[in-house]
Design a binder for these strands. Structure first.
Length: 852
RNA sequence: GCGAGGAUGGCGGAACUGGCAGACGCGCCGGACUUAGGAUCCGGUGUCUUACGACGUGCGGGUUCAAGUCCCGCUCCUCGCACCA
């Protein structure tokens, strides 16, 4: 009888479920291991093979860690608030509550089929009121600490749709739906003061084991830069313009100021003569999306007519507005030093503004010089070298003494806009009187549940659809005795995902979001696996929430994720055929593939009688491209274990995975070979017997144990499987029957192909069935004596070039080695007519004969 | 432009602190067993060469007895950020 995954897989899944095999409980004193997967957004389309790529890797580690004696927490849940469900509600009138519940149903069924060792009793969903009660409560803590505040933020406003759009709903300045113009609009809304955590978010990165690229992305996002605020007096005004600069040492060369068009002082300064031009430019800027503005590097701007005083030179300089200065960064105003800043130089050239050299070393007539040099045209500082930062310190100190500058650290990171004008999100638990926030709800008033609404479509005013829930909106507040109104904005999708890893530790607690006992035991996450696309969003927000909770003593650790790894995307072939231009740029879903040569193919396609030539590209799976593989289909054909092994074997965890069914079949074939090592005959009688293993068998086994153990620890799953290939191949050739060898082999297979392994372990190796299963059997230990050979094959080189190999005793001396080498024909030929001048011999590694 | 990562057979990928480059798998070629094979098993497979051998880890230099691995200078690719003062 052959290996039949469709029979054994459901059997063991039932067993695990019935016996709560993977339910995690706090066991004081036992080392814990918390393995976390980024929880999925349950879309209506169900899971695709991209999800299991990462989930399988963490599951392998979990099963391994259990066998190594760790108390493993491996939870799963759903990030279930979000736009797609809301869009479906608008399009089809299905309540998001309903469509989300259906989608979760599908996801749960699919995830269970994949055989992950999740503790399903800890399943959570961010749109569940029992969950978002605590999301809301954390918000009220942030509000109490003034980390949550109402501020002015910019949104993508689409007048045509009457709604606010997310960044990815805006394409080339137009709405993705309907292609209507989108403008940037200032709106008063909830923000989180993530900038207050900037320094700690930065320094915390040094304490965690994350991919360097991800740390770099966060560092850049936070964007720390040292510099100074410098005040410029404005003629005829008592107000001063403050600029941020990283180069106070170039102040003598500041020949004009530039304010962002949105800068709040612009209107006050602008002279009558320039008012019209300035207003026109401001309007033009507002009409351009941020992306638009950044797309063009062309310098534009308008003189406000105002004149400021350079505090270093005392000279009068013009004040301009230009869109290359960003309102949200620094003070929204700069001192322009065209001699030593490329952007200022280009602007000065375009507008005919003066350029002054204040640091020698370049030719400011030709280009801005940003390098180091010696200060010139800088009054008392002439001759000061700029290298090393001394010049900056001196000038800043001098200005500080005059009261017009202070050293400062500026961050690029902007506060987090924490509101969406949408329905399908956590209601923000506050009561307002008009624009005025009166109070946040208290714990006993939570959760503030999302009320049903009749219509999910945008209101057209920019308010969320909650504005229609009139019975819910108006409140006679028993606490203040006032007639108040609820907030109609909801929280963004990233709210619920910013703390879910804590809730998993204590998911049913209705007194606290998570007890200290639970988080102290389970946290921090020991391994977090998820997509690199969350580099700066989710991974930064979660760190901030953790720090906020830490500051209030609600959690012990400042960093939530001790170790992070990203999994690669699953790619599939897409076919492009030639259009009229002759370029292969027409995405085509083939009816069948006739011929396939990796980069090119012949395909049959709709509208073509004959097969047509197509270019093959590997792209992320998507429904539109017709290259999606559904895990259910794969499982039907080959079983889950084959899929799991394939995903692990294909590429290293973090690399993209080009989906090739032939490779998957190969892993299925390997599992069949494993099966035949344990069972034989038509009745599948177990082959294992109580016979003493041979030294060769033990050597093979222990080497496999050693390699697989080290590889799983290093998350090098592809090489672990290749070691298992070798072990099963060689043991099969030896006809191994020894239970002493086969039983541990089943354990090595278990993390990767857990269902098969349970059968191998019990029926195959004759071990008793236990509630926990093979995952809890102590992991085999590689004995050192089997890992070393008595003899070793080393390479022989003549003048550094390979000339054969010799087999030697491990501790053979140089004389023996040279003699053995000289006995080789190939070495003899190389040495003919020469004498050995020098011998390099590294026992067990190499013998190199230097001949002359 | 800035930052990060990468480049090894026809393909996915191995290679510990420098020490026999190409493990394992796909594909391809050949064979065995079969009524059959898209089952199973065995063998071969970097390039050139009849052989001996030579050449081979993106390119050009260097260090070393020895370099995929270390150093210097490039090219190309992927991802992120992008007028950040």
């Amino acid at each position: 009888m052959p290996y039949r995954p469709s029979e054994i897989e459901p059997l063991w899944q039932d067993h695990w479920e019935k016996h709560d095999s993977y339910v995690a409980r706090i066991v004081p004193g036992q080392p814990k291991f918390y393995a976390l997967d980024m929880f999925p957004y349950p879309s209506g389309k169900g899971l695709h093979v991209g999800h299991p790529a990462g989930y399988t890797a963490s599951d392998v580690v979990c099963r391994f860690k259990r066998a190594r004696g760790f108390n493993v927490l491996h939870p799963i849940g759903y990030d279930s608030f979000g736009l797609p469900a809301e869009q479906r509600a608008i399009d089809e009138g299905i309540a998001p509550q309903v469509s989300t519940a259906e989608a979760i149903e599908t996801f749960r069924r699919q995830l269970k089929r994949l055989g992950y060792s999740y503790d399903w009793s800890r399943e959570i969903s961010t749109c569940d009121p029992a969950y978002y009660k605590w999301t809301q409560w954390i918000f009220t803590r942030l509000y109490a600490k003034r980390i949550a505040y109402v501020g002015e933020g910019f949104v993508n406003w689409c007048p045509e749709l009457g709604t606010v759009l997310a960044n990815d709903e805006v394409i080339d300045g137009k709405s993705e739906r309907g292609n209507h113009p989108v403008e940037r609009k200032r709106m008063s809304q909830w923000m989180l003061r993530i900038s207050a955590y900037a320094d700690r978010l930065l320094s915390g990165l040094d304490t965690i084991d994350w991919p360097e690229a991800t740390k770099t992305a966060q560092r850049e996002w936070i964007g720390r830069s040292e510099g100074a605020f410098v005040d410029f007096a404005v003629e005829g005004s008592s107000e001063k313009v403050t600029v941020f600069t990283t180069r106070p040492d170039t102040l003598f060369g500041a020949t004009y100021l530039v304010l962002a068009p949105e800068h709040s002082m612009v209107d006050g300064f602008t002279t009558e003569a320039q008012r019209e031009a300035v207003a026109a430019y401001q309007k033009r800027t507002a009409g351009r999306s941020e992306r638009d503005r950044q797309a063009s590097k062309e310098k534009t701007g308008v003189d406000t007519g105002a004149r400021a005083i350079n505090p270093a030179t005392g000279k009068t300089i013009p004040v301009w507005i230009a869109d290359y200065v960003i309102a949200g960064y620094g003070t929204g105003a700069i001192m322009a030093v065209p001699g030593h800043d490329e952007r200022d130089w280009e602007f000065a050239k375009a507008m005919g503004l003066p350029i002054v050299e204040v640091i020698s070393g370049g030719d400011v007539a030709k280009a801005a010089y940003a390098g180091d040099g010696v200060m010139v045209n800088s009054g008392p500082f002439d001759g000061t070298a700029t290298a090393g930062g001394e010049a900056i310190r001196k000038v800043t100190a001098w200005l500080a003494e005059k009261g017009c500058a202070r050293a400062t650290v500026n961050f690029k990171i902007r506060d987090w806009t924490f509101a969406r004008q949408r329905y399908w999100g956590e209601p923000i638990p506050v009561l307002k009187d008009g624009e005025q926030v009166v109070r946040a709800l208290t714990l006993d008033e939570l959760p503030l549940e999302l009320p049903p609404v009749a219509d999910y479509a945008p209101t057209g005013t920019g308010e969320s659809p909650l504005a229609r829930a009139v019975n819910w909106l108006d409140v006679d507040d028993p606490v203040t005795g006032r007639h108040l109104r609820r907030e109609v904005d909801t929280m963004p999708g990233s709210a619920g995902s910013s703390w879910y890893f804590l809730r998993y530790c204590d998911p049913h607690n209705d007194q606290e979001f998570c007890s200290r006992e639970a988080s102290d035991y389970w946290m921090p996450v020991d391994l977090y696996v998820g997509g690199a696309e969350h580099r700066v969003g989710h991974l930064l927000y979660s760190r901030m929430w953790q720090k906020a909770l830490f500051d209030e003593g609600f959690v012990r650790d400042e960093e939530p994720f001790a170790k992070l790894r990203h999994q690669g995307m699953v790619l599939a072939r897409t076919f492009y055929i030639a259009g009229e231009s002759g370029k292969f740029n027409h995405l085509t879903i083939p009816e069948s593939v006739v011929k396939d040569d990796d980069r090119t193919a012949l395909i049959r396609a709709a509208g073509h009688d004959e097969p047509v030539a197509a270019e093959v590209r590997w792209e992320k799976m998507s429904k539109r491209k017709g290259n999606v593989v559904n895990p259910d289909d794969i499982i039907d054909l080959y079983g889950v274990d084959s899929l799991r092994v394939y995903l692990c074997f294909l590429t290293p965890l973090e690399s993209d995975k080009p989906w090739q069914t032939s490779q998957l079949e190969a892993q299925h074939d390997w599992l069949k070979r494993v099966w035949r090592l344990f069972f034989e005959g038509d009745d599948d009688s177990p082959r294992a017997q109580d016979v003493a293993p041979t030294p060769d068998e033990l050597k093979l086994l222990h080497r496999a144990v050693d390699k697989v153990t080290r590889d799983i620890e290093a998350l090098s799953l592809n090489t672990a499987i290749s070691a298992l290939h070798v072990a099963t191949r060689d043991l099969a050739r030896m006809g191994t029957r020894s239970r002493e060898v086969l039983a541990p082999l089943a354990q090595l297979v278990a993390p990767f192909a857990p269902h098969l392994a349970e059968t191998l372990w019990t029926r195959g190796a004759g071990k008793p069935v236990t509630p926990g299963g093979v995952a809890y059997e102590p992991w085999p230990v590689a004995e050192a004596k089997w890992l070393v050979d008595d003899t070793v094959t080393i390479g022989v080189q003549v003048n550094g070039k390979t000339a054969g190999t010799i087999e030697l005793a491990l501790d053979a001396d140089e004389e023996t080695a040279v003699a053995a080498a000289k006995a080789l024909d190939s070495v003899g030929r190389q040495l003919a007519g020469k004498s050995v001048a020098k011998v390099i011999y590294k026992a067990g590694k190499i013998l190199n004969l230097i001949a002359k």
